[in-house]
Nucleic acid binder design. Structure first.
Length: 819
RNA sequence: GCGGGCGUAGCCGAACUGGUAUAGGCGCCAGAUUUAGGAUCUGGUCGGCGCAAGCCGGUGGGGGUUCGAGUCCCUCCGCCCGCACCA
């Protein structure tokens, strides 16, 4: 018997045992229909890179604790896990090492599943989703066809960002940084003109700016708002003087400055350029166009570069003033934003100002800054003011002028108010093998033909050849590419050989978890009615404008298809931070600062590793790994172990106050921990539990035999259960409690019991703390005041002084103000 | 340039609606135990002055509001992130 009592806490000895037991008992399986209220707790699924690193643990272990907490609170919690299994690394492995992407991916998934199991998380593996499984990607194709039917998927020739290393096009969001590099491999991207498939996310631009009904971090909202880039303005039709009947549109957010337009600028690629260019100017224009096409975006967009352009030889007419103005082309005007043409208003736009200076164009003032006396501008004036040199609008404040000019233009049919977005449609074509085939057939007779639904899935052929050609390996796969036209039966038809961006998968994977085997649709609508939408989503901030925008778009499309009756996929979102190496840098093999989870588990056990990740810093911040910090958490778990294992000294009933004090501490701790867990404040929840453990340790010798003390210990284990699930289960069992602690209710607290009976009343004189006295928490203000004034130390300080005021904060503080 | 965030001990951090600044952990110091080291336990640990009681200072700098400011306002400094010729 004695040897058992003295047994030390050895995590490795208990963790595997409980993991096996929980799995055998299907403890983590969430039934689809259940009297309990449901809680769909989702954590971003990983890419199966082959190794589970500390970053995965940081994202997953604390969210597991939060999910466990919800389950103990009485919810039927669905906590699924899967793999984002399509994507470039698998294909690169195929090219570099001759391993088939499928083989590579599946081997990685196997390995990662094993590693994930060591975490002791409550994932419902019966719901696992692997996106490269045809059972999954067939629904990508199904969704695509639905969108195609509705005009939400379309094909267009477009200049795309192209990664020359990965040999594929990239979505705009996948091009990062000042150097405009591929987010995956860091290679500078180039522009390429290709026929590409797009999803019409811009249709939902306005709705995507609306966040009512969901609790998402402001940070994410701001990033998305910034990305969508809404701006209100007026689209003005500018007639071309030299080609009667011809005109082009410009977009401006400052219609009030229209009288100040002294030139117009088209993007070099603007379709009207060829027509407008006069023969004298042709050579110069062509040279400029050539130069602009060759320049990479980085040079072109550089603010260092001097603004330049070329006169086309043609003139436009300012539709408000009737004046003729020269038309230029310049690469500071982007074809991809607005109309690809602008009004040149040098007085009130800094770029136009520089351009006008360079080419000697007039720079009239049409919005007079306050106090302006007619002098020339040193730089563009961007603020508000009074309209001048603006015909009938002279003297009008510019803000009012904005509206009046917009109205006048609408009345005269020369302009209309318009909202412009920086958001572009989502480019989903990838010239790669390892993705979902786009279910489209090009027929010589019928043109673009969608694959009929009954022919789905369009399967990825296994026997493709992997060559880094810049085109999909599917293009060289005769058996895949050549196909009969499903419409006319003709043999002169070819399949689309591009595959879909993997962000398509993650846009709706959360719905597949509901019923991963379901064959009649992307998910079982009955099951969906119970579980949806996702109650809590957690993941990294890096997905703020990619995945998180796409999945909101996708859900809105699903709503419009009648598949769901809500428009927001996730009610609450929480972003965890990033764990860095001990040196404060991002963990990377080349730096040698990687903290390997498997090593940590071998050394401390999964529970310690989990608890430390939660304790080291606020979860939303992340930060450097502290090699010694984990020791402190490990010690804490040891202390819990000995607290629960070493027999208590026999009951020594003392004064009644003991039981009350234990109960008070217990309830106060439950309150703190409950509130912190609900808000993902794991670090402070654990700090509160540490204090509680310290308290139980200090009182053990005196009160250890008391039933109230034993109850406190039991409560402690329940609160530790989400954080260190194995340890809690083990001690629970050893304490003779029925299996499983994880099926027990979270302890509830009574705020009355949590309240201290005696409090320290702080006594200040002129705002400085001068004394502290122990009083009943329920002390009346008048009594508190009297006690404060009676304090020896206060009397010394107030002697001979006039007391101007006494401020009493009930149960906390008395401040005596001397005049 | 535009948008956002942050700055508290030697380190990571805590502090609800303004009300005892520094909880909890790490580290460090001392003690107990031990042949020793390690582990464990106990106590101490913001700075200055003081034998002590105590006094003074203290949340990046400066100013303000308030009986009272880490918290609110203004301003400056430093660091971080996102977007960026977006018309």
């Amino acid at each position: 018997m004695k040897t058992v009592e003295r047994e030390r806490y050895e995590a490795q000895a208990i963790e595997g045992k409980w993991q096996a037991r929980w799995e055998a008992d299907r403890l983590s399986h969430a039934p689809d229909f259940d009297p309990r209220p449901k809680f769909y707790f989702l954590t971003m699924y990983p890419y199966p890179s082959g190794d589970l690193h500390t970053g995965h643990w940081y994202a997953m272990a604390p969210s597991d604790a939060a999910a466990r907490f919800r389950r103990m609170q009485g919810f039927n919690v669905m906590f699924p896990m899967g793999f984002d299994a399509f994507g470039l690394p698998a294909e690169n492995a195929a090219i570099e090492r001759g391993i088939h992407p499928y083989t590579w991916t599946m081997a990685n998934i196997d390995r990662m599943r094993r590693q994930l199991r060591s975490m002791g998380a409550m994932w419902d593996w019966e719901r696992e989703v692997v996106t490269c499984d045809p059972d999954f990607y067939v629904w990508n194709q199904w969704f695509f066809l639905k969108m195609y039917e509705r005009g939400l998927a379309y094909r267009a020739m477009a200049p795309v960002d192209w990664c020359p290393k990965d040999n594929t096009s990239l979505a705009r969001e996948q091009v990062v940084g000042d150097e405009r590099v591929c987010e995956r491999c860091g290679t500078p991207v180039i522009k390429k003109n290709l026929e590409q498939w797009f999803l019409k996310i811009t249709t939902y631009a306005e709705e995507l700016l609306e966040y009512s009904g969901i609790e998402w971090p402001d940070r994410v909202r701001l990033l998305q708002e910034n990305w969508i880039g809404r701006s209100e303005g007026v689209e003005i039709t500018i007639p071309v003087r030299d080609h009667p009947g011809r005109s082009f549109d410009v977009f401006t957010t400052r219609p009030d400055t229209v009288f100040g337009m002294t030139f117009a600028v088209l993007a070099p690629e603007h379709p009207l350029v060829d027509l407008l260019t006069t023969s004298e100017q042709r050579a110069e224009v062509e040279a400029y166009k050539f130069k602009a096409a060759r320049a990479s975006d980085i040079e072109r967009l550089s603010t260092e570069k001097e603004r330049d352009g070329v006169f086309t030889g043609a003139h436009a007419i300012n539709p408000m003033s009737g004046e003729a103005v020269p038309i230029y082309i310049a690469d500071y005007v982007l074809l991809t934003y607005g109309t690809g043409a602008i009004q040149g208003v040098p007085g009130h736009d800094q770029r136009d100002f520089e351009f006008a200076r360079k080419y000697g164009l007039p720079i009239p003032v049409v919005i007079a800054p306050p106090g302006w006396a007619g002098e020339a501008l040193e730089q563009a004036y961007l603020g508000e003011g009074t309209m001048v040199n603006s015909g009938e609008f002279d003297g009008v404040p510019s803000a009012e002028g904005w509206r009046r000019i917009a109205e006048a233009m609408e009345r005269r049919g020369i302009g209309r108010r318009k909202v412009n977005y920086r958001l572009h449609d989502w480019l989903i074509s990838r010239q790669r093998y390892w993705g979902t085939p786009i279910p489209i057939i090009y027929c010589q007779t019928c043109g673009t033909v969608p694959v009929p639904q009954e022919d789905l899935p369009v399967l990825l052929p296994h026997d493709a050849e992997f060559r880094p050609t810049g085109e999909s390996p599917l293009k060289y796969h005769e058996g895949f590419r050549t196909v009969r036209c499903p419409q006319c039966g003709g043999e002169e038809a070819e399949r689309e050989t591009d595959t879909m961006d993997t962000f398509v998968d993650s846009s709706w994977y959360q719905y597949r978890y509901l019923s991963p085997g379901y064959g009649d649709g992307p998910f079982d609508p009955h099951v969906a009615r119970y579980w949806l939408p996702v109650d809590q989503y957690t993941g990294g901030i890096e997905h703020a404008v990619l995945h998180l925008l796409y999945t909101r778009f996708w859900t809105k499309v699903m709503r419009d298809l009648g598949l769901v009756d809500f428009g927001e996929p996730m009610l609450r979102l929480y972003n965890q931070g990033i764990v860095l190496g001990p040196d404060g840098y991002r963990m990377s093999k080349s730096r040698g600062n990687v903290v390997d989870p498997d090593e940590q588990i071998a050394r401390y056990g999964a529970d310690t590793f989990r608890a430390y990740l939660m304790f080291m810093r606020p979860w939303n911040e992340g930060g450097p790994w502290d090699t010694q910090g984990i020791e402190g958490v490990h010690r804490w778990l040891h202390r819990i172990w000995s607290l629960a294992r070493v027999p208590a000294s026999p009951a020594r009933p003392r004064e009644n106050g003991n039981a009350r004090e234990i109960r008070r501490r217990t309830h106060a701790t439950i309150k703190r921990v409950t509130e912190d867990m609900a808000e993902f404040h794991f670090n402070t929840a654990i700090a509160a539990l540490m204090e509680f453990v310290n308290f139980l340790g200090e009182t053990k010798d005196r009160w250890g035999g008391h039933h109230e003390w034993a109850a406190a210990l039991r409560t402690l284990l329940l609160m530790v259960a989400p954080i260190a699930p194995h340890l809690a289960e083990e001690l629970w069992a050893r304490g003779g409690e029925p299996y499983s602690i994880h099926q027990h209710s979270w302890p509830s607290f009574d705020p009355e019991l949590a309240r201290a009976e005696r409090v320290t009343l702080v006594i200040q004189v002129n705002g400085k703390v001068r004394d502290r006295i122990e009083v009943s928490a329920a002390i009346a203000d008048a009594d508190a005041k009297a006690l404060a004034l009676a304090s020896e130390r206060v009397r010394r300080l107030t002697a001979g002084r006039r007391i101007a005021d006494v401020i009493v904060v009930p149960g906390r503080l008395v401040n005596i103000v001397l005049s």
